[in-house]
Design a protein around this nucleic acid. Sequence first.
DNA 1: AATAGTGTATTATGTAGATAGAACACTGTT
DNA 2: AACAGTGTTCTATCTACATAATACACTATT
Lengths: 123, 123
Amino acid sequence: MPLDFDPTRPIYLQIIEAVKKRTVQGVYQAGGPLPSVREMAKEMGVNPNTMSRAYMELEREGFITTRRGEGSSITESAKRIDSERRALAEAARDRFVAEIRDLALSREQIDDLLREISEEVTL
Amino acid sequence: MPLDFDPTRPIYLQIIEAVKKRTVQGVYQAGGPLPSVREMAKEMGVNPNTMSRAYMELEREGFITTRRGEGSSITESAKRIDSERRALAEAARDRFVAEIRDLALSREQIDDLLREISEEVTL
DNA sequence: AATAGTGTATTATGTAGATAGAACACTGTT
DNA sequence: AACAGTGTTCTATCTACATAATACACTATT
């Protein structure tokens, strides 16, 4: 099942985000193996070169480790994963705040939005 | 003062968003004039061709009207602008919900986030 | 040793986005 | 008529991104 990528943003960046999200969700385990470049490329419907680029960037960030001939695995550090979860949440929060601030919304409109979020986010 | 564009997203799309935000903020008035392509390009620090592309897209969407030799102006319709404000707010909300959903946050963590947003958004 | 499965590198091709510079078309004013 | 200021178009160049196809380097297993 190929991921449906946002065509306005580089695919390899979206792959990086997807791998991180899957990890904080528990789809991939701390210290556990990651699908091979070719396999993951096939699953997500992208070119192996693109997947390789995403893996190299994830390795550069220290989120995964990779050994030639063996494959790649998620960082051993549960702390790293948890801090990634927080970082993703805070980044999402900051983006949202920045976007909302410029819209000249009334306090009531803002409260409505937050209520809607509170309901929808747990569905 | 050149806008600080996100290098991972097309500039002309970010310009479109910026013009819409400035309009819902009241920087540009309904029916009022918009800076010329060259002027706005200079202000935002981009190439006039890029600005022209953004203006053409805004015209295609019906958000501005443009007449050769005269210049461009914001739509006369206050309704259009208000619906744009709502559309931007809902889009931001939906993006945020989608981002948060995948992070396996506890209800408490989510409530904390929303509280932080509620505080920061009005500063 | 051979093989299959890893990651990695190379070369080529195509597309979108952005810039630069020049020219053209139209409007309003002088 | 001339000019300055509009939007618009065109050509050329550059870069990033993505794909395709192939090859190379390394590891584990048979």
